[in-house]
Design a binder for these strands. Structure first.
Lengths: 125, 125
DNA sequence: TTACTTGCAAACGGTTTGCATCGAG
DNA sequence: CTCGATGCAAACCGTTTGCAAGTAA
């Protein structure tokens, strides 16, 4: 656990919405940390691979990250423009996917569900 | 309406899934059309602006296009091992996502749903 | 004619990589 | 001491733009 990792974790901890690698890097610099952009990218990649971070691609092409607050399985409603996120309960989805196990003979069923849209703020611009 | 536009329309007409600008360009070249990549991008942009094309950003970062309104939205149940796919109807999902428009003030809501598992064949191996 | 489209090449912006160095364990 | 993390600079890749030449109407 390096100094840079601790610093990034801190910033991720404090932000509630999805943030881009560059935004996170800028915040680190603003706080006086000396961190390379490539390092931030590397850290974010590791975090996402390890399942500690959720990632999504914005309309602009950047990837945005957020620490996953809930441990249990859940989904997000995410603004495609600014990354603002709402956590969703999805009992319907869980039930829906369960049904496939017997119906199609599939096992170990998993699912990825991302709901995206434009939040009230971004829609007016 | 130029020759290149007619050619691209033809290719879009024939493809049922979302295709990237580069894929579409490659298909045009494969058919013997002399078209520049920049032209394909320009055409796709115009088509999307005019509402004739749906566009979405893939995980890889490319933008993929599809002619609008053909074929209703659906999802797949895909085997993680052999790639075997089953088409799914998802009325529950559609209804579920619709509810968010008013509840959270989001507009233009879209969703990505991927259901994966092991098919009967692959599970026994 | 005239405005719009074409298409090459160069620019752009986010991300990744090569590699020498650093530092945690 | 060792191996993974760091960070600069350069490479990458999809996309956009500048601009000269072409073409539909």
């Amino acid at each position: 656990m390096t100094v840079q990792q601790r610093a990034l974790n801190e910033v991720l901890e404090e932000s509630t919405d999805f943030a881009s690698a560059q935004e996170l890097h800028a915040r680190l610099i603003a706080r006086g940390h000396r961190v390379g952009l490539a390092t931030v990218y590397a850290q974010l990649r590791r975090g996402a691979d390890a399942g500690e971070l959720d990632s999504m691609r914005a309309d602009t092409g950047e990837v945005r990250f957020r620490r996953c607050g809930q441990r249990s399985h859940h989904h997000h409603l995410i603004c495609r423009t600014c990354g603002h996120a709402v956590e969703l309960d999805a009992p319907e989805i869980e039930a829906w996917t369960k049904g496939f196990e017997s119906r199609y003979g599939f096992t170990e069923i998993d699912h990825i569900v991302e709901v995206t849209g434009l939040c009230a703020n971004c829609a007016t611009e």
